[in-house]
Computed example of a mutant assay.
Amino acid sequence: MAVTGRTLVLRYTAFAVIAVLANLAAQRLVLAGADPVGGLRFAAAIAAGTLVGLVVKYVLDKRWIFYDQTTGARAQGAQFLLYALMGVVTTAIFWVSETAAWLIWGTDLAREVGAVLGLSVGYVTKYLLDRRYVFRDAREMA
């Protein structure tokens, strides 16, 4: 199924926003009631948010961006693992941006702005990697 470039960008952006909101919501749940926020709790919040955002984004990308028809637990597991591995570098961009903002300004707003900026840069990079390495079979069939 072919979609226009504009539709693809709008859809990918919307899914990135959904994943970012899921990520930040998971972080807030982990950080809730922690005063002051310590390093271990902060690390747990980032990890939980990253995992939630990754799963949400994978499901949306697979179906609505790349129209991937991969079936079977083994094949999908391998595909998800590759998808996650492609996100390692892009996740580092996000973590550095979020952590730097938190360390510099020390507020939740700064942390979340840093997260959004880092995730934005990361998602553009991630799309390019996923298109080339993770969902290449789906692209070739389209």
Rank of each mutant, 00 (worst) to 15 (best):
N23S: 05
D137E: 14
T90S: 07
G53N: 02
L10K: 06
V88S: 05
M1N: 07
A14G: 15
L31I: 01
G77L: 03
R74K: 14
F94Q: 15
T4P: 04
F66K: 00
R11F: 10
L51M: 14
A75F: 09
T7S: 08
L85K: 05
S120C: 09
A44D: 06
T70L: 14
P36G: 04
V116P: 02
E140P: 03
V37W: 01
E140F: 11
I46C: 06
K57Q: 13
A32S: 06
V124L: 13
A142Q: 14
K57S: 12
V56H: 00
L8A: 11
T4W: 01
L40G: 02
R11I: 09
L24Q: 11
L129I: 12
V96M: 08
L8T: 12
R28K: 14
R132T: 15
L51R: 08
L85C: 11
L54E: 05
G106K: 00
F80I: 01
L117T: 14
V121F: 13
A73S: 07
F80K: 02
R11M: 04
A110D: 02
R28V: 11
V124G: 12
Q76Y: 04
I18T: 09
Y127S: 07
Q69S: 14
F94R: 14
L109A: 03
F66W: 13
Y58V: 00
L117N: 05
F42V: 03
F80H: 04
Y123K: 13
G122N: 14
E98D: 12
T70E: 13
I104V: 15
L40V: 05
V89C: 03
D108H: 12
V52D: 12
V88W: 07
V88T: 07
V20L: 15
A84C: 04
A101Y: 06
A48K: 01
L117H: 03
L51N: 06
R11G: 00
L21G: 00
Y58C: 06
S120F: 08
V9L: 08
G53L: 06
Y133F: 15
D137Y: 14
V9Q: 09
L128I: 07
R136A: 15
G122A: 08
V55H: 10
D61M: 07
R6F: 11
R132W: 05
A101E: 12
A43I: 00
T90G: 01
R136L: 12
V30Y: 00
I93K: 04
I46V: 15
